[in-house]
Structures are given as C-alpha cells and as structure tokens.
C-alpha cells in the first residue's frame, strides 16, 4: 500500500471555509433570535408577518452557511484523502453539518421553523468548540481505522445523532411550554401535543439509525477487535443510549407517557449521546479512542 499524499494547504483552506461558515451561522443565529423575540412581542398581525420575514432571512442565511460548511467538510476529506470523520474535530464538523442539513431538509416535510434558533445555536456551539478545543492537522488513517465500516458505521452514527438532536430541541421546548408560567415568548411555539408528536417522530428515526450504528459497530469490532462485543467504554455507552431510547419508545407507546415525562426521557437520552461523544471520547479509557487529541 502506498501512502496517500495529504494536502495540508487544502486542509488550511478547509478550516478557513468552516470558519466562514461559522460566521454566517452566527449571523443567521442572531437574525433568527431577533425574529423570535419580535414574534413574542408582536401584538398585531403585521408585526408577526414582519417577524416571519426576518425569520426567512435567517433561514436563507443558514442555508448559505450550510452550503459553505459542506464545501469545508468536503475539502477536509479531499485533503486527508479519506472520509472526513476520523478524529474528533472531523466528527464535530461533519456532525454539525449533518444536523443543519437534516434540519433544513426536514423543513420541507414538517413545519419546525420555530426551533431554528436552537438548532443553529447548537451548530454554532459544536463548530466553535471543534475549532477551539479539538482541532488537529490532517493525518492518514491508522491501520485499525482503514476499513469501509468507518464510512458506514460513523456516518450513520452522525446521522442518528442529528435526529436525536432535533428531537431533543423539541422536547426541551415542550418542557418549557408545559411549565406553569405562560410567558409571551413561549406563545410563539406550537402546543405541547404538536411538539410531542414531532419529537417522537425524530426520535423514532434516530432510534432506527442508532440501532444500525450499534449493529454495524459490532460487525466492525468483530473484524478489528476480534470480538463483536466486549463492553468497551464506547460500546457500553452506545448500549446505554440504545436502552434509554428503547425505554422511551415503550413509555410512550405502551405506558402512555405523554408530554413532559416523555420529554424528560428524551433529554436524558440526548445527554447520554452528548456524554458519549465528549466525556467518553476525551476522558475514558478504551479501545475506541480516536479523538486524535
């Protein structure tokens, strides 16, 4: 096998593109936040309309940012001569891209414009921390990662995480809405029933993708680590997350958990997802340490 040449100049360009995307995301976030605030304050129909127009601008900006982000992720992959998700910096920028991309695509199927501020805010947070905390120069893959399962397993994990993220944003809103205080701000969002339905749908897709990630991980582990399951820390947390969401599905479909209770379970599940990605990657010991830091 001949080593592939890494293109460090292109990697620098990629980083620059991601930072430009970040800037546009930040502007989009601010515009969306202003629109949200205006809607909350609006007393007349025209005011609401004006706020919605501002929201459109915010979403278009988010679209631009996502496009630039896409090029940034793509060039990172070309620079490294492989898929751009082999260390934590790369997981983060690819993951953030998928979150905003899935969100924007979902807008065509479901009316979930009202969480735009939160989703884009999350994306800003992820790219921001990727750049400041996780950045590493492009490197070739270590032999343990040279496998097509890297493409399958990790991409589906990222996709599943994106769905869980959107579901969690909806669940968070649901909890805020079902509180005692009826603030003007919260009136902007749909009722809790609608939020619950939407959150459930994103969780279901997320769960299917997560199940696939778990199975694909086990198949890969059989090749790379000589057993399909060995309770490695990352395997443990993937299992924990899976079990929490399975409990969520049972709670909502067979126990009739609704509203707040189900939403809390969603948030617990999502905290486990974030924990798995950050704390487990950075501080826990195990075979699965590919943060590159």
């Amino acid at each position: 096998m001949n080593p592939a040449a890494l293109n460090t100049e292109l990697a620098t360009t990629s980083r620059l593109l991601v930072l430009i995307a970040l800037t546009v995301y930040v502007v989009s976030f601010l515009v969306l936040a202003v629109s949200l605030a205006n809607r909350a304050k609006a007393t007349k129909q025209e005011q609401t309309k004006a706020a919605l127009r501002i929201e459109n601008i915010g979403l278009v900006l988010a679209g631009f940012a996502t496009a630039i982000h896409a090029v940034g992720v793509l060039t990172r992959g070309i620079a490294a001569n492989r898929v751009p998700w082999a260390n934590m910096y790369e997981f983060s920028i690819s993951g953030a891209f998928v979150v905003s991309f899935i969100y924007l695509v979902a807008l065509f199927f479901r009316d979930i414009r009202f969480i735009a501020t939160f989703v884009i805010g999350f994306v800003v947070l992820v790219i921001g921390s990727a750049n400041t905390l996780f950045y590493v120069q492009v490197e070739s893959l270590m032999p343990a990662l040279q496998d097509y399962w890297l493409v399958i397993h990790v991409s589906v994990a990222i996709l599943g995480t994106a769905f869980f993220t959107i579901a969690a944003a909806l669940a968070g809103l649901l909890i805020a809405k079902s509180g005692k205080k009826k603030s003007n701000f919260l009136k902007v969002f749909p009722d809790t029933e609608k939020l619950e339905k939407l959150s459930y749908q994103f969780n279901v897709i997320g769960f299917i993708l997560w199940t696939f990630t778990l199975i694909a991980g086990a198949i890969w582990a059989d090749k790379a680590w000589h057993r399909f399951w060995g309770w490695d820390t990352k395997e443990v947390w993937t299992f924990i997350i899976w079990t929490i969401y399975a409990a969520y599905l049972h709670a909502t479909t067979t126990r009739g958990w609704e509203g707040k209770k189900a939403a809390w379970l969603t948030l617990i599940g999502f905290s486990a997802v974030i924990f798995n990605f950050t704390i487990v990657n950075l501080f826990f010991k195990g075979l699965h340490v590919y943060s590159g830091l």
Binding site: G230, W231, F239, T243, G286
Partner: peptide, 22 residues
C-alpha cells in the same frame, strides 16, 4: 420499563471502573 431503565443505569459503572474482561 423499570427494568429497561435499570439496565441502562446498571451498565454505567462498567465504564467507570476498569473491567477484568477488557
């Protein structure tokens, strides 16, 4: 449902303390 959630919780210590198997 309770057992399912308990299983998730019971798996946590295995990621905190080193395990003989791994």
């Amino acid at each position: 449902l309770f057992l399912l959630l308990l299983l998730a919780a019971a798996a946590i210590p295995g990621s905190i303390y080193p395990q003989r198997s791994a």
